[in-house]
Amino acid sequence: MTTRILYLLCSAAPPVFEIAGVVEEAQRRGWDVCLGVTPTAADWLEDNLPGLAALTGHPVRTRYKRPGQPDVWPPADVVLVAPATTNTINRWALGITDTWVVGFVAEGIGKGIPMAVMPCVNAAYAQHPQLPRSLETLREAGVRVLYGTEGFEPNLPGEKRPYPWGLALDVVEDLGR
């Protein structure tokens, strides 16, 4: 059996605290998971980063490597950006690559890597006019967008409800075929 490589790239939204269970589920589905997080998500998960690296068997990526340094991960077969904040989505769609996560997925479009994004935004952020534009830009670029009736539906500010990780991993399976 060929090893399938999933890059799971996360922004700082509350579902990021569930990431160990998501990694384990992806591994049960046969994926070798490489975990990358935005700087704020790394701050939120600071105490868990060593355990997450041990769980995945790969270092958790949070920033760009220096020129000339070797890549520490195998090449991705599929990329899932989830949870994706409004900030991450808008920066990705606009090509603002000031973080490694956004830089990788922006370049991934040009490399033709199969990618999906599942936002995690509340209904107030969802009203900002740039968010639908950014999601449409990503769709047009070939990114599978899991939003609205096709994925995550915005919640009221402060409302807590389950994040549809299972749906996201089902889409990863589809993209990995």
Score class of each variant (00 low, 15 high):
Ala126Cys: 01
Asp170Thr: 15
Val72Ala: 14
Lys65Arg: 13
Ala12His: 02
Ala20Pro: 05
Trp73Asn: 11
Gly151Asn: 09
Trp165Val: 08
Tyr163Arg: 13
Asp47Leu: 15
Cys10Ile: 02
Ala53Glu: 04
Val72Trp: 13
Pro114Ile: 03
Arg177Gly: 15
Pro154Met: 13
Leu6Val: 03
Thr137Lys: 06
Ile19Met: 08
Arg28Tyr: 10
Thr62Phe: 04
Glu107Phe: 09
Asp32Trp: 11
Ala76Lys: 10
Arg139Met: 07
Tyr147Ile: 13
Ala54Leu: 06
Leu169Pro: 09
Gly108Val: 06
Glu24Leu: 14
Pro59Lys: 07
Cys10Ser: 08
Gly112Val: 04
Cys10Tyr: 01
Trp92Ser: 08
Ala26Ile: 13
Trp44Thr: 04
Leu6Ala: 02
Gln69Asp: 11
Tyr64Gln: 07
Leu138Gly: 02
Pro14Tyr: 07
Leu9Tyr: 07
Thr86Gly: 04
Tyr147Met: 13
Glu140Trp: 07
Met115Cys: 01
Thr3Ile: 03
Gly51His: 13
Trp92Thr: 05
Pro39Glu: 06
Trp100Asn: 09
Asp47Trp: 12
Leu35Tyr: 11
Ala141Glu: 00
Glu159Ser: 11
Ala76Gly: 05
Glu153Tyr: 14
Leu52Asn: 07
Trp100Leu: 09
Val171Ile: 15
Ile109Val: 09
Leu52Met: 07
Leu156Asn: 10
Pro50Ala: 10
Leu8Thr: 05
Met118Glu: 00
Arg28Asn: 08
Ile19Pro: 05
Gly30Trp: 12
Val101Thr: 05
Asp77Leu: 13
Ala41His: 14
Asp170Leu: 14
Leu131Arg: 07
Asp98Cys: 08
Ala124Lys: 02
Glu140Ala: 10
Val16Ala: 09
Thr85Tyr: 03
